[in-house]
Design a protein around this nucleic acid. Structure first.
Lengths: 224, 224
DNA sequence: CAACAATTGAGAGCACTGCTCTTGACTTTG
DNA sequence: CAAAGTCAAGAGCAGTGCTCTCAATTGTTG
């Protein structure tokens, strides 16, 4: 089964060089030094290869995020949050095609098989809420920094399900703000990777991102 | 020049039905009842059609956002912000393919011609900072709600350029928070449109978005 | 060791794509 | 009325995903 590893490796190269939509099984076969029909022995179809690359990407991101968070002191929740976000951004900038595949527009006609992608695909958010929840349990989360906003009943029901699913202790206010921070981090990274800022509006992108993280840290009530 | 309008119209339909990557000039030609080579009379190539659809999308979004904001009282800055964000989300959910084209992963091999897309492409953010700046000038912006975060010099230089370019009065703190709110809004919308939340994590999506807007409103210091 | 079975790659082929070029018909203009 | 311009058709090239058959190689078993 060395071949299937070669195929995903070459697939990753093509993904990085030409993007997901231009991912061609024939080109991979060429690089593999084999005729196109031969790769169908190992990979059912193009979508299957996409799924392999998807899982691959999720796991690489998850590993890097995990390592970055683990490198911080166990009680430095703000530091862990910053480290997580920076790890996401670093990986995204280094692997823009993979990031696009995971977090960009869905590939038309392709539906990720949930039973294979959900677990690796939720590693980052699970880790993030883990940080917030640990901070809450340690009394390091102060939700009073911003004016309180009422949470409608329907939303509270969703939050209750999440709390049960992930064994969380944090209250609704903290959970919704955690979700907001989550989307904001990926929104900022996506803007950068997808070129929404334009070529020269922001030259100090490291500083901009770091600054946004500090503000978000305040939003969720992590004292730094 | 009716033909070119027909082509973009059919292009939009195909975009909505099959997505940007699957946009085929031949299929458009078929629907137009004409042979494929004929459309090359009117549209230089596939990228040109993509550009037309891009500008079309930006303008439609810009129009809807503008109308939504204009419908609010001139001194209700928080209401204007909420209206803008909701208009973005409504349009994105209604036109997911167009939204993907504008704010999703870049189409591989396609580079938008800045001289044609920059102006329509910045309508929303220009409008958004306009709201924040007007609020600041009216004394309705309170940046003290969150702990102050230092702004490094390089970032301040970027902000100074933006301030000059758009004739703004708001200070750095408000500007960076405006940028954060901007990315956060689009991050939240992208998560929803791109299916990052998963199929059933959040059932109360209207409420979730509204709640996030209220929190963001606090972040930028708009009193509601 | 020989016979059988399973695995693997090659090649042809179908239907599709973007795009170019030439040819012929039609319409407008001088 | 003839020249000039406009337009669509059709053939063709190179690429794509994918399926099928066939031959060669390899592994297994009696």
């Amino acid at each position: 089964m060395q071949t299937i590893a070669d195929i995903t490796r070459l697939g990753r190269e093509h993904l990085a060089l030409h993007g997901a939509a231009a991912l061609s099984l024939r080109a991979v076969a060429r690089d593999l030094g084999v005729v196109s029909s031969a790769v169908y022995r190992y990979v059912q179809n193009r979508d299957e290869l996409l799924t392999l690359l998807l899982i691959d990407g999720y796991n690489e991101l998850g590993d890097e995020v995990g390592a970055a968070v683990d490198a911080m002191p166990e009680d430095d929740f703000a530091g862990q949050f910053i480290a997580l976000a920076k790890a996401v951004r670093s990986w995204a900038i280094r692997e823009p095609a993979s990031y696009s595949l995971l977090f960009g527009s869905p590939v038309p006609g392709y539906q990720a098989p949930g039973e294979r992608t959900t677990v690796p695909g939720t590693r980052v958010i699970v880790r993030l809420v883990g940080i917030f929840d640990a901070a809450y349990r340690a009394g390091a989360l102060n939700a009073e920094v911003l004016p309180a906003v009422v949470i409608p009943e329907k939303l509270a029901a969703d939050l209750a399900a999440i709390r049960a699913e992930l064994n969380l202790a944090a209250p609704d206010t903290s959970l919704t703000r955690g979700v907001l921070v989550w989307t904001s981090v990926f929104g900022a990274v996506s803007f950068e990777v997808f070129g929404q800022y334009g070529p020269d509006t922001f030259t100090a992108r490291d500083e901009l991102f770091e600054h946004q993280l500090r503000v978000l840290q305040g939003v969720v009530g992590l004292q730094g």
